[in-house]
């Protein structure tokens, strides 16, 4: 590697660095600033730990967020892995169509998808009308989890599919040759080889579901408050400092869990870099 960077290199990197500083570093500093200050009546800020100290009040909300998002992630994995497997094992042409079908919903706005899910699951919604019943679905934990799974499933399937489709066909043949029937090949060879895809998928589903607020608001029917909702409420009601403190702690927790997950991932390839 050359130590001296060319002028061209510096010039071409400049916009990206500017972008990163303006939209990542600066907001991060602002969040940290708000998290550790309180606003005085005269509009000035003083340093304080009181925001952080108030966080234990939100532990139960955080616990609920964690519970729902972990369940949603687990469901995504159980549903997504076989789907990714089927995709990776189908003919190249079929694979293209399946990827397309999987991506298609992602082109629609998440809020709109959630609203339509609401219309389907509502007490007087399409599902209940079809069945001629009036089950309460919206407002249950199940509905929120279903919403998360529905919205984030592609993020589980795609990295696992990518990982599986990269596995050499000789791996299958070698496993069979050495005495594995199909289930054993899957457990002993294919599953371990797709670990990095699983870790990416879990990360990409767990993180957005833990911080979501739109899904819980729409499908939770106002009965649930998840940590995303709490943060949103703080900001909407002007309690910027507490909101910032919760966000900051969330960020730190996510960072820690990602680091731990990446430790389990392959060091050579795959996984997402924190």
């Amino acid at each position: 590697m050359k130590n001296k960077k060319s002028l061209l290199h510096s010039i071409s990197a400049a916009p990206h660095i500017f972008w990163a500083v303006l939209f990542i570093v600066v907001p991060l500093i602002i969040v940290i600033f708000y998290a550790f200050t309180v606003q005085n009546p005269d509009g000035s800020y003083t340093f304080s730990f009181s925001n952080i100290a108030s966080l234990p009040d939100y532990i139960s909300i955080f616990g609920l967020s964690l519970e729902l998002s972990v369940i949603a992630t687990a469901v995504c994995l159980v549903v997504g892995y076989p789907l990714a497997y089927i995709m990776a094992r189908s003919k190249p042409k079929t694979q293209k169509i399946l990827v397309m079908l999987l991506m298609l919903p992602m082109w629609t706005n998440l809020l709109i998808r959630t609203y339509s899910l609401m219309a389907i699951l509502d007490n007087n919604g399409i599902l209940n009308q079809l069945l001629g019943t009036s089950f309460q679905i919206v407002g249950t934990k199940g509905a929120v989890i279903f919403g998360m799974v529905y919205d984030f499933l592609p993020y589980m399937v795609l990295p696992i599919y990518t990982c599986l489709s990269k596995i050499d066909k000789y791996m299958w043949e070698a496993a069979a040759d050495l005495g594995c029937d199909t289930p054993k090949t899957l457990v002993k060879v294919i599953l371990p080889l797709s670990r990095s895809g699983i870790i990416s998928g879990v990360t990409m589903v767990l993180v957005p579901s833990i911080r979501t607020f739109s899904i819980s608001q729409k499908l939770g029917g106002g009965t649930f408050e998840l940590i995303g909702d709490t943060i949103e409420r703080q900001f909407v009601t002007g309690a910027l400092n507490v909101g910032a403190a919760i966000s900051l702690v969330m960020m730190v927790l996510i960072l820690i869990s990602l680091t731990i997950m990446n430790k389990f991932g392959d060091s050579e390839d795959g996984g997402i870099i924190v």
Binding site: D168, M171, A174, D177, L178, G179, C180, D181, L193
Partner: peptide, 16 residues
């Protein structure tokens, strides 16, 4: 293949 008393050395080795 997994029930045959035959083993293979693959061209690309196919180590796990």
């Amino acid at each position: 293949a997994h029930k045959r008393q035959v083993n293979t050395v693959f061209q690309k080795y196919a180590l796990f």
